[in-house]
């Protein structure tokens, strides 16, 4: 009996430290954010729960502009990164011998923090940057300032490029291993069944690695959707991404803006969860073979 009971509780005992950290600090943080978004903020004398701040935020035009801008950056960077990463992974899978140089090189950006990536891309692509100088020297531009503004602009091309520089290697890494296993296992069977290399990719490798492709790109999407530093540093002044907008409300000296900040971040979180959820449902339907 004693033994049975220990066996029953064993997984919970093993999980206890992790759950303690996650429940207290993660769920705790989430709960506080939620409470504050409903206007419960005893420190400044707000004790009643209300939807006042939600209606205030959702009623603003800036909210929709901000949501659209955030979605635009995440969607474009994730979609492009995913496509390029799949192309790259497939290229590596089809190499006859493993190219150690490529293998090392493409992983390098994964070890580079986003801030450093941002700094490097700015040095490269800003209006006074390296590329602008080359264009100027080649006579394509009359002065470096004619280089199209990629940063602080509503097109957010600079931000998207930074994300792509970071995320392509990450998705490639996650997808390559899976693709390579599938290709090794089933590629030969497919090619004796008259599948050309192209057929092998589209009919076998790609559909079977879809789950890992989707999970990698979902992680990337969620990250860029909620990321703060890069849009804060290099984003347009209007619209701001949701996270930046929330932060500006949070640091405002007027403490009454705190609940607004919480509303924005809760909305941000909800969209993140919703979109990733849609992603996963999509994946489940795709994987009907069980």
């Amino acid at each position: 009996m004693q033994n049975n009971l220990t066996a029953y509780y064993k997984p919970y005992m093993l999980l206890a430290p992790a759950l303690l950290v996650l429940v207290v600090f993660f769920l705790g943080g989430l709960a506080f954010a939620l409470l504050q978004s409903f206007g419960y903020f005893p420190v400044i004398g707000l004790n009643k729960l209300s939807l006042e701040y939600y209606s205030k935020v959702l009623g603003q035009r800036e909210f929709y502009a901000s949501l659209g801008f955030t979605f635009y950056i995440s969607f474009v960077s994730t979609a492009l990164s995913t496509i390029v990463a799949i192309y790259l992974a497939n290229y590596m899978v089809n190499l006859k011998r493993k190219n150690k140089f490529i293998d090392f090189l493409y992983k390098l950006p994964i070890a580079v923090p986003h801030i450093v990536a941002a700094l490097m891309v700015v040095f490269l692509l800003s209006q006074g940057g390296f590329v602008a100088r080359i264009f100027f020297k080649l006579g394509l531009l009359n002065e470096t300032a004619q280089f199209p503004p990629l940063f602080y602009s509503r097109s957010a091309i600079g931000i998207i490029l930074i994300y792509m520089w970071k995320e392509i290697p990450f998705i490639t890494l996650m997808v390559y291993t899976v693709m390579n296993n599938i290709h090794k296992r089933l590629g030969e069977a497919a090619s004796t069944l008259k599948a050309s290399p192209r057929d092998v990719f589209y009919q076998v490798t790609l559909p079977l690695s879809m789950p890992s492709i989707i999970s990698a790109s979902a992680i990337v999407f969620a990250f860029s959707f909620g990321a703060f530093e890069i849009p804060y540093l290099l984003g347009a002044s209007y619209p701001k991404t949701l996270s930046v907008w929330a932060y500006f409300n949070y640091i405002s000296p007027d403490l009454l803006n705190r609940p607004v900040a919480m509303v924005i971040s809760i909305v941000l979180t909800s969209f993140c969860v919703l979109l990733v959820g849609v992603y996963y449902v999509f994946m489940k339907n795709l994987r009907q073979w069980g």
Binding site: F25, A31, G226, F228, A261, T269
Partner: peptide, 12 residues
């Protein structure tokens, strides 16, 4: 991994 750290951080 999914939920933005900004929400958790500001909340806690």
């Amino acid at each position: 991994i999914i939920i933005p750290p900004i929400t958790v951080g500001m909340g806690i």
